[in-house]
């Protein structure tokens, strides 16, 4: 019984404390459903899902890097950059591959500077964030342009009355599940992160794991997930917008942290991250329905993040 309890609370578990945010989410959901009429409507459910989806996608990518004890502060910039590329006056057959080539290149630079050039991940991705934002503003100083019809359809279309968003969710979750739990890559991520968190950063390497290559791939994966989120957002706003991405950087970290993933690495779960993103989306949705101003929403999200990281005490002081 004690062991079961320990598992549920995230002690002695690799999944982290995800049960608490789940309960919080359910309680919040129930409360909103009872207290406001607008919440439990099909339209709002659709909105909620569309709001949560890009965050879920970015957060999954962010989680892979966080599990390695890293952090990717360039995901927001990648999202903006993606919308700017898609809003170029070019066919989707060119721009969509271009988006992924760019994402892979960015992830490759992030991963290489971190693993080969010994740069702290926060500094490396912070610098990348500035560079990508600069490029984005060169291409599109203010919101505008129009994304190809295909991209719009990908997001707003539906088959048999089921919105495409649902398929996006299924596809992304399946992909992430395969990467994290259904492959050696995923196990190696947990192994490397576990070594880093317990202070023996070369433990995984000693087991014969290609730790640098795995880390590099995780950064590339993170950028690609951000690009995917960017495509989704571009389809929704049907234009390019340099300002759409940056809030996602901190939101994704918040979602990951809420979901029980330890920022020191090695402990966390896919379902926890999805729960974390949903809780955050629910919070925004609830505040929107209650007409809370956008500024206060930002501040409240900051306070939530502060509370969550204060809850995660680590062994070492610092970044």
């Amino acid at each position: 019984m004690k062991a079961v309890f320990a598992h549920l609370t995230g002690q002695n578990s690799r999944q982290g404390l995800w049960i608490l945010p789940l309960i919080a989410g359910i309680v919040g959901f129930a409360w909103l459903a009872v207290s406001t009429d607008q919440f439990a409507t099909p339209q709002n459910a659709k909105n909620l899902l569309a709001q949560a989806m890009p965050l879920i996608i970015v957060a999954i990518g962010q989680m892979m890097v966080v599990l390695l004890g890293g952090l990717d502060l360039s995901v927001g910039a990648v999202i903006s950059f993606t919308t700017a590329i898609l809003a170029l006056d070019a066919p989707a057959a060119i721009t969509i591959p271009a988006v992924f080539i760019a994402a892979i290149a960015i992830g490759f630079i992030n991963g290489t500077t971190v693993t080969r050039l010994n740069v702290n991940p926060i500094i490396a991705t912070l610098a990348m964030q500035m560079i990508i934002m600069g490029l984005t503003r060169l291409m599109r100083p203010v919101a505008g342009g129009e994304v190809p019809e295909v991209v719009k359809q990908l997001v707003s279309g539906a088959v048999f009355g089921v919105p495409f968003t649902v398929f996006w969710g299924l596809l992304v979750c399946l992909l992430a599940w395969k990467m994290l739990y259904g492959s050696r890559f995923g196990l190696h991520i947990f192994a490397i992160g576990g070594g880093i968190a317990s202070g023996q950063s070369d433990a995984a390497h000693t087991f014969g794991i290609a730790d640098k290559r795995t880390t590099l791939l995780a950064y590339i994966g993170c950028s690609c997930f951000a690009a995917l989120a960017g495509i989704f957002l571009a389809g929704r706003i049907v234009s390019g917008d340099p300002n759409i991405g940056p809030p996602f950087t901190l939101d994704s970290v918040t979602a990951v942290a809420i979901g029980g993933t330890q920022l020191s690495g090695g402990v966390g779960s896919l379902h926890g991250t999805i729960i974390g993103a949903l809780v955050l989306a629910l919070l925004s949705n609830g505040m929107n329905l209650a007409n809370v101003s956008a500024f206060v929403q930002t501040a409240i999200k900051g306070a939530v993040l502060l509370a969550v990281v204060a809850f995660q005490s680590r062994k070492k002081i610092g970044l």
Partner: peptide, 8 residues
Amino acid sequence: RRSSAVIV
């Protein structure tokens, strides 16, 4: 609390 400085 030894929380992550960047995030705090």
